[in-house]
Design a protein around this nucleic acid. Sequence first.
DNA 1: TGGCTATTTGGCTAAAATGCCAAATAAGAA
DNA 2: TTCTTATTTGGCATTTTAGCCAAATAGCCA
Lengths: 110, 110
Amino acid sequence: MGHWTGEQLKARAGVLKAMAHPARLRVLEALAERDHCVCEMQALVGSDMSTVSKHLSVLRNAGLIADEKRGTNVYYRLLVPCILKSLDCVETVLQKQAQKHRVLAGKAGA
Amino acid sequence: MGHWTGEQLKARAGVLKAMAHPARLRVLEALAERDHCVCEMQALVGSDMSTVSKHLSVLRNAGLIADEKRGTNVYYRLLVPCILKSLDCVETVLQKQAQKHRVLAGKAGA
DNA sequence: TGGCTATTTGGCTAAAATGCCAAATAAGAA
DNA sequence: TTCTTATTTGGCATTTTAGCCAAATAGCCA
């Protein structure tokens, strides 16, 4: 909880950066439910297969997911189940922001 | 907990992206303790004042912090105290990664 | 008012991230 | 082995981010 070193800050920022993309969040969300192969995730994300593969490698390099070959496909699994729960506070941020916008728009008051 | 829409994913990714920088994490860490003025945070971050100011505006636009003028200085405060606790799982990621690296280096086994 | 002091903004350059296509790989099926 | 399918990698163009300097603001103090 004390002061982090520059290296520690960099490492933490790196993990956050890996998560900070809509497609990659979508992947994490899916993997929190069950393992998925790349082709399934391409359908979810809706981008080119090569793009999806690169997103997956970002998440893998960050230590968030791992891959495993099963038959013809490569399946990915979530290494850190807590990661989606750690978005709870992000939710709070968005709620507060929505609240503020409502107030600024004069539609309601707290 | 269900499936997020594209907009929801984008909003969540946006907040994470705002956090995903060493200097900005350092700022959040400091503000979790108490309010700080910009000049104090410049000392903490060690970059040009204008750079620090831009980092602060990223965090402000994301809804994570707010500013308030007090005398000569502008003080920032953390709007969402839970945000640093939401890094607990990031910690877990780093620990698992360090563990894996130890195993790959053959220095120990679980 | 004029001059500070603290902070923000504009402008610019360098670096990193995105996403597509095409080519390379890997591995099962025939 | 050869064909095919699933995935990764290389390359490239476009966009976004980062960080510095210099200039613009804002507000206090004399």
